[in-house]
Design a binder for these strands. Structure first.
Lengths: 285, 285
DNA sequence: CAATCGAAGCATAAATTATTGACCAGCATT
DNA sequence: AATGCTGGTCAATAATTTATGCTTCGATTG
C-alpha cells in the first residue's frame, strides 16, 4: 500500500506530535527527499527519535525505509506528465526541439504500429524467413527509399539470408529474371507511384515470387500489386519534418521485423553473431 | 534523467569495478532497496568507498541519493510495465514488443541528447552551413555506418550543399586531395577504431579542413582527431538490439541537425522545396 | 626509467539512524 | 490526596551507515 495512504488512514489514532509529522509528510512529500530524520524533526520542533518511532509504528523498518517508499509513491504519482511538457513551453532551445521532434516520431510510430496488424508483420517475417532458407530476397528502393532498402538488405544478409539489393530498375529487372517460386521481392516506395517499380513487381509475380511492398498508407498502384503490404503513417505540415517522421516510423517497422527474424530462429541468431564478429575484425584490424 | 539511463550512458567510460557496480544496479534495481553501500560492496567483493565514489562520479550527492533516484525510477517503470509484462510472461505479442523497443529507443535518444550540448550541435550546423556556402562537405562511413552517412549526404545535397559522399577509403583519400580550408569532413564510425579513417581525418586536417566525427560515446582514436565530436549513447545486452538503438539515436541526432540547417536559412529552405519537387517529378512521371 | 595520473582499497571521520532510559502528564485506583 | 500505571516525548548515546583522506598499485607518458 502507498505509504501516504497508510499515513492518512492512521492519522486519527495518532498523538498530537505524530499527527504533525503525518501532516508534514502528506503536504511536503516531494520535499522529503532532502530531509534527514533530524532535519524533519527540527522543521517541526520535535525530537529526532519521535520521527523514527513514528516510522516504526507505521510498520516501516525505519526512517530511510519510509523515505524510500514516499519517493516511490511520488514517482508513481507524477509519472511522466509534469516535467516533459513543462520543459518546452514555447519554441525553446535546440535541445527542446529535438525532444519535440521525438514526440512527433513517437506519434508516427504509434500510428504506424496500429495500421499494421501483428499477423501482417508475422506473415512478412515468415515469408522472408522462408525465402532465406530456400531462396532469395530481392530488395529495391529508389532515391531516399534506397536508404531504408539498403539498411534492411544489410541486416538480412547479416542473418545469413541471401539478399539481392539494387537501386536501379534496369539491373533489378535483369536480376529478377533469375527469380523463382518461393523468392520474395521487397519494394520500398514512399508514394508507390513509380511505373518502373510497378512493372518490376508485376514481372516478379509472373515468376511466382511473393511481392511485399512498403509504402505510405495511401491507395497507390504499387500496393495493389502486393501479396503483403506494409504501410507507414507519418504526417507533418512542414515539408522538411514529414520525411523524418516517415523514415523513423518505417525504420521502426523494419526493426520490429528484424527482431522477429532474429528471435524466430536460433541458427539465424548464431549466424548474426558470427557475422558481427567477422565484420568487427574486418573494420578494426 | 532516469538514473538507470544515466548509468547506461556512462557505462562505456567506466573502469572495470565501476562497470560491475553499474551492471549490478541495472540488473538488480529493485533489490537496491535493501542494500546499504556496504552490502552492495560486499555483494561485489569491492570496497564500500568505491561504491560511494561511483555514485558521486555520476553526479549524485551520495549513495542514498542514488538509491532514492533508482527507487523513483523503479516506481515509474513498474507503473506502466507491470500490467504489460504480466499479460505476456514469456514471448509476448509482436505489437507489445515493438512498443518496448520504442521505449528503449527513447532512452537512447534521451541519453544521446544529454551528452551532446546544444552548442556542439549548433557548432556543427554552423560549420556545415558555412561549408555549404563556400566549400564542400565530405562524408564517409564504412559498413553499416555508410547507411547513415549516405542518408545524411542525400539530405544535405537536397539543401543545396555540395556534398561528396564515399564509402570507400581509397576514393575518399583521392577526393580529399581537392579539399581546401573551410571544407568539412564528416566521419561516421561507431567505434572510431578504423586506421584508414583516422588517416583520412589526419590528412584532412593537414589540408586545413574541419573534421567532425560521429562515434559512440567512448574514448576512441578517431574522436581525438575531431574539431567537433558528436557522440551517441545506446546500450543493450542483446547484440541484435543494440545496433537498432544506436542507429535510432544517431538518426535522431542527425535529424535535429538537419532541422537546424533547414530553419537557419530561408534560401536553403527554398532550395529544399525546389529539390523535393524536382525529385517528385523525376520519380513519378 | 622516472614522473604522473587515475583507480581502488584501508582506515577513519562524519553523518545519520536507532535505542535506551529518564521524565512528565494524564488518569485510574486505593 | 497520594500512589502507581500508561503512553508519549525527549536527551543522550549506541549502532549503523555514509563520506573522505591517505596510501598503494598499475598504467601511461615524456
Amino acid at each position: 500500500m502507498s505509504p501516504l495512504v497508510k499515513i492518512r488512514s492512521e492519522r486519527d489514532r495518532m498523538s498530537a506530535v505524530e499527527r504533525r509529522i503525518a501532516d508534514f509528510i502528506l503536504e511536503n512529500a516531494q520535499l522529503l527527499r532532502d530531509y534527514s530524520s533530524q532535519q524533519l524533526a527540527n522543521a517541526l520542533g520535535i525530537s529526532q527519535s519521535s520521527v523514527v518511532k513514528f516510522t516504526q509504528k507505521l510498520g516501516f523498518k525505519g526512517y530511510p525505509d519510509l523515505k524510500y517508499s514516499v519517493g516511490e509513491a511520488n514517482a508513481r504519482a507524477d509519472n511522466g506528465d509534469a516535467p516533459e511538457h513543462a520543459a518546452s513551453p514555447d519554441g525553446g532551445s535546440p535541445g527542446a526541439f529535438a525532444g519535440n521532434l521525438w514526440r512527433r516520431k513517437s506519434e508516427a510510430e504509434e500510428a504506424t504500429r496500429l495500421i499494421n496488424p501483428a499477423e501482417t508483420i508475422e506473415a512478412v517475417a515468415a515469408a522472408i524467413g522462408q525465402a532465406g532458407q530456400s531462396g532469395k530476397v530481392f530488395i529495391i528502393g529508389l532515391g531516399e527509399d534506397d536508404i531504408y532498402a539498403r539498411g534492411f538488405a544489410l541486416k538480412l544478409s547479416l542473418l545469413g539470408i541471401l539478399t539481392v539489393h539494387n537501386f536501379d530498375t534496369a539491373r533489378m529487372t535483369a536480376n529478377i529474371s533469375a527469380a523463382t517460386a518461393g523468392d520474395v521481392l521487397l519494394v520500398f516506395s514512399e508514394h508507390g507511384n513509380h511505373p518502373a517499380l510497378c512493372k518490376i513487381a508485376r514481372y516478379f509475380r509472373e515468376r511466382r515470387g511473393q511481392v511485399i511492398t512498403v509504402t505510405r498508407h495511401t491507395a497507390n498502384p504499387l500496393r495493389t500489386l502486393a501479396d503483403i503490404a506494409l504501410v507507414v503513417s507519418a504526417h507533418d505540415e512542414l515539408p522538411y519534418i514529414q520525411p523524418l517522421l516517415y523514415q523513423s516510423a518505417l525504420q521502426h517497422l523494419l526493426d520490429g521485423l528484424f527482431v522477429l527474424l532474429c528471435e524466430g530462429h536460433d541458427d539465424r541468431h548464431a549466424q548474426l553473431l558470427a557475422n558481427l564478429d567477422r565484420i568487427q575484425l574486418m573494420l578494426e584490424p
